[in-house]
Design a protein around this nucleic acid. Structure first.
Length: 545
RNA sequence: GGCCAGUUGGUGAAGUGGCUUAACACACUGCCCUUUCACGGCAGCAUUCAUGGAUUCGAAUUCCAUACUGGUCACCA
């Protein structure tokens, strides 16, 4: 009996051949440098920062090379899948404007994109390996394997199903048939030709040349439930989907020799591998891979709630991805990260620490460069979900809010007050009567109540003028002089004893009376927007007390 | 335990044998600008690249050993 007969015995219903599938999924018609990449998560929940970063990479490379980016769902482990897992992942990725050319929901010509829907394809490929003598059925039970493991541990030998421990490797056709007729469960295993004492050398796009021992383990190709584990599935899928560049977590690196053996067994062209380092986080003194369960800041909802722009997060990813990006971006402020050419060899070979501080800084710069309309739109989108009261307020006063947001914006050196949209309310509350209800005033140098009243009363009676910024400040200077303060800061600093105080003190009093805060953006812009009546009311509140 | 990788300031890092008395950015500190704050400008912040040894006229960069960190050794991905 031949291997072909064995293949027929195991897979009597598989009639298609690999050639049939190759015809169904032909080579893609792309230019030579175009990359076909993919992100292949398990549907175990919402995307977190680690995933988002991991998917950013293949997406960027596909896009910048006019290639194809695929989302494939690896749900071969039924135990871990959750309901709606696929929709949630796709939603999250689309929220970041990732261009996903092929995915389970919108489809594509190289699907299905869900592994459990590809069972008949895997069967065909497994049947092929059996038919050429590179795979065989294994009827060992979990107990058998456990026993084997114990023996290996005792003898201090390598653990695994290989060499003399691969009991089912030499089963005869008759023995197999007896098991099958019996209805015994089985897995399909690779008949490995590797030698653990020999080395295999391969080139990783990020880590460079790596030398590892060959695989000699008869790994499981098809589980007893008929579904393949990751390794076999990814080879079949990436080949049929014509993936050119496999980006994946660096923890796979030690199984590359096995994967290469698989590619070679089929005789397929091996795609390029790029093993990426995970995002890390500092946990006390140790640095470890970011974890969905332990780290609240790993959840992307954390950033959404705070109102950190998705663009800022992508900019941060870009700086982590290629260390030379940051400098380039600094010199090309008007450009998008998509105009930058990312390369694999500029990627870090050690895990990068996720730094919220840095993210916030990038976000601050990003928001500062937006126009008032853009900020307003983003703010309103954010507030409509996370702050309904504020949303109602800014919607009611849309044009006014835009002007508030425009204070010292849309100029060469815009203010960088907001790192996130949730910062805005706390920093602009005094621009809204509905939010302005000061309990305390943060007075500066002048604390004498009567003096404050005197300054404010005189100001409103004689010097208030918001027709023009220069005039406005000239009047404040006049007020300053009339009260015996210095209107010239240089002079005041040279002879502070000659005066009661300076124009800075007077300005502060007005500023605090109007906003309750001693630190604000341009006071003139604030007063201009508030208008005389509201300024008068706020000042009355203090002078009348 | 076997195998693999990594180790440059508080942080992300540049750096591939002389241009490095280690770039750039974040953070921090000080000064300047300034009606406050912010912005901006300037300056400071690793004499040293985990440790020890070797090669070399010359090493963060090459080699060897040690230490530490991470990964991996499933019918999980």
């Amino acid at each position: 009996m031949t291997n072909k007969d064995l293949a027929e015995l195991l897979y009597p219903n598989v009639t298609k051949t690999i050639e049939d599938y190759e015809k169904m999924y032909p080579e893609r018609n792309l230019t030579e440098n175009s990359m076909v990449t993919r992100f292949a998560p398990s549907p175990t929940g919402r995307v977190h920062m680690g995933n988002l970063f991991a998917s950013f990479i293949p997406q960027v490379f596909a896009k910048q090379s006019n290639g194809v980016f695929i989302l494939r769902i690896e749900d071969t482990d039924g135990k871990r899948a959750i309901e709606n897992g696929i929709e949630l992942i796709l939603d999250d990725l689309k929220n970041y404007n990732y261009q996903i050319d092929e995915n389970p929901i919108d489809g594509g010509n190289y699907g299905p994109y869900i592994q459990t829907e590809r069972k008949e394809i895997y069967d065909c490929f497994a049947k092929y390996l059996v038919s050429i003598g590179r795979a065989y059925p294994c009827f060992c039970s979990e107990d058998d394997l456990e026993e084997m493991r114990k023996e290996q541990e005792e003898k201090k030998e390598r653990i695994g199903y290989y060499g003399k421990y691969a009991k089912c490797r030499n089963l005869t056709y008759e023995e197999v048939k007896k098991h099958i007729d019996n209805g015994d469960k089985f897995v399909i295993r690779l008949k490995s030709l590797g030698d653990f004492n020999k080395k295999i050398i391969f080139k990783d796009l990020i880590k460079g040349t790596i030398e590892l021992p060959e695989n000699d383990l008869d790994q499981v190709l098809i589980k007893s439930d008929g579904i393949p584990p990751y390794a076999f599935a990814h080879v079949v899928d990436d080949h049929l989907m014509r993936v050119t560049h496999i980006t994946r977590d660096d923890s796979y690196i030690s199984s590359v020799p096995y994967h290469i053996e698989l590619w070679k067994a089929f005789g397929f062209k091996i795609p390029k591998y790029a093993h990426i380092l995970p995002l890390c986080i500092k946990d006390g003194t140790t640095i470890r891979k970011i974890s969905k369960r332990k780290d609240p800041e790993a959840a992307i909802s954390f950033y959404h709630e705070r109102g950190i722009p998705t663009e800022a997060i992508k900019l941060y990813f870009a700086t982590l991805l290629n260390s030379n990006f940051e400098e380039w971006y600094l010199q090309n402020q008007d450009k998008s990260y998509e105009d930058f050419t990312f390369t694999f060899n500029k990627m870090s070979t050690s895990g990068s620490l996720f730094d919220l501080e840095k993210l916030l800084n990038i976000s601050k710069n990003y928001i500062s460069k937006l126009t008032k309309d853009e900020v307003y739109d983003n703010l309103s989108k954010w507030a409509s979900i996370y702050d309904h009261d504020f949303y109602d307020l800014i919607t009611k006063y849309e044009d006014y809010t835009k002007e508030v947001l425009n204070i010292e914006r849309e100029q060469k050196k815009p203010r960088k007050d907001y790192a996130s949209y949730s910062d805005i309310k706390n920093q602009t509350f005094y621009m809204y009567d509905e939010l302005y209800n000061p309990k305390e005033y943060d007075w500066g140098n002048i604390t004498d109540r009567e003096e404050i009243k005197k300054i404010l009363t005189l100001y409103m009676e004689k010097y208030f003028d918001i027709s023009d910024k220069d005039i406005w400040f000239d009047k404040i200077k006049k007020l300053t002089e009339e009260l015996g303060y210095s209107s010239n800061m240089k002079e005041y600093k040279e002879n502070p004893d000659k005066y009661k105080g300076s124009v800075a003190d007077i300005s502060t009093v007005i500023r605090v009376a109007v906003t309750s805060k001693s630190m604000t953006p341009d006071l003139y812009a604030i007063m201009k927007l508030l208008g005389k009546n509201r300024v008068q009311k706020r000042i009355d509140k203090i002078t009348e007390k």
